[in-house]
Design a protein around this nucleic acid. Structure first.
Lengths: 241, 241
DNA sequence: CCAAAAGTGTTATATTTACACCCATGC
DNA sequence: GCATGGGTGTAAATATAACACTTTTGG
């Protein structure tokens, strides 16, 4: 906001009261990964004319919170998780994007682990569902567009930052990690090259455990070593897949 | 916005009218490049308590425009340029970021060529000035923070997309281009390697002209060939400096 | 013993880096 | 003739890409 568009403070305040019947919301594209598929958490929509569609999870931004805080609040309320990866993506402000009036929304994406605790929690919110991204053809409002914008940003970021681990169990095998990248980026990776590269980064910790009760040779399990990553990052190291 | 946070349509409308005395603005970090320095266009601020500071260029978002349109409008109004590179960066929504009330702002950065036509235009807006980014220690509101966020994003993008040309004259020498990257990224580049790489991309067009009235061997002049770039991009080519 | 995934090295190719000298122009 | 930037090539090091077989477990 510059002063040059404003004659004086009073004009300015009047302008706010007259012009702005605009609401601000946040919408979250919550990505999860399960069964070798990328999914998002959606809600049944009951607002006309979108009664048969699903929508993203969102809410109005409260007067006492930032948009980041609002997005975090939505995430905690819907998933029960307090420590989630959240990234602000873009504002969507088409005048007619919402049937009830002007609602400018700030889109976020987040990455969470789908596990049984979540399923239990979600059962309480009967209208929430995980949907495979690939199987979604439309969503309420402009949410399909928002989803794709967030998906593209996530696909870019997952190659530049070690955020993919947020989608996996804490302990994971190298093949699990490889499949994650293959599914999300829709590419094929060479097993040996992938392993050499990831191990070479030095941010994976071999915890000395192996898979249990799998009907094949059990894989070693790793964790993402965040503290090593932070240290390396500060010394000019770049994660780059 | 999801329906799950809303009881019914009427509640929702009430909520908007009651809760939202929030204004939405856009703020533009307008980058220019001149005299081997990166500059931004700022305005003298006359709003207390920031009377002695400079501020970014911005305005309230009008009811009939998107935030992108508002940012474009600000740019045209202030610089006179209609065809400018504009990129949405991030929302800033701290409750106390603006002294007059809650103003949520969407930050944009843009890249423009500083030339004499501009200087003329700017003289009409006597309170506008180009300031070297490196010499700015503070700005009104949270604009210093916004500037740095936009600068970081621009530094990242200029390596990934051929947008640096927006800051140069249409015809430029390879050394001009190299200096641009060196100044913006605060790095040193090897002349021979830089030339090989840029020429190898195939997006520079040698127009067969050379510099005039320079007191050294005149350099060949190039233009950025946008149509070739678009063609290559669609075939999976990535600009990457 | 079969199915299924784990795990492992080498070679060829492409990319990146480092580096030093002569050239053309204006003054 | 001198100051200033323009312009050029090669070799070494590094990173990437392609590729196939043996191992371990459960059933």
């Amino acid at each position: 906001m510059t002063t040059s568009s404003v004659q004086n403070i009073n004009t300015w305040l009047t302008q706010i009261n007259n012009d702005f019947k605009t609401a601000i919301s946040v919408d979250c594209v919550i990505f999860g990964y399960d069964d070798d598929a990328l999914k998002i958490l959606v809600s049944e929509c009951d607002m006309p004319p979108y009664e048969n569609e699903y929508s993203l999870l969102g809410d109005l931004v409260h007067p006492d919170e930032t948009t980041d805080e609002a997005a975090k609040r939505v995430l905690i309320a819907k998933t029960g998780f307090t420590d989630v990866f959240l990234d602000q993506v873009q504002v969507f402000s088409d005048q007619n994007r919402h049937p009830l009036g002007r609602v400018i929304t700030v889109a976020y994406y987040s990455l969470i682990k789908i596990d049984n605790d979540h399923l239990t929690h979600l059962e309480k919110n009967a209208n929430l569902q995980w949907k495979e991204v690939n199987e979604i053809n439309s969503l309420a409002f402009d949410h399909f567009n928002i989803m794709h914008t967030c998906l593209r940003k996530m696909q870019k970021q997952i190659r530049e930052q070690p955020i993919g681990f947020n989608l996996l169990p804490q302990k994971f095998s190298l093949l699990q990690l490889q499949r994650l990248y293959e599914v999300i980026l829709n590419i094929e990776l060479d097993k040996r090259n992938f392993r050499r590269k990831l191990k070479g980064l030095g941010i994976l910790h071999d915890i000395g455990e192996i898979q249990e009760s799998v009907s094949h040779r059990p894989a070693r399990l790793y964790t993402f070593d965040k503290s090593v990553y932070e240290k390396k990052k500060n010394s000019g190291f770049n994660f780059d897949l």
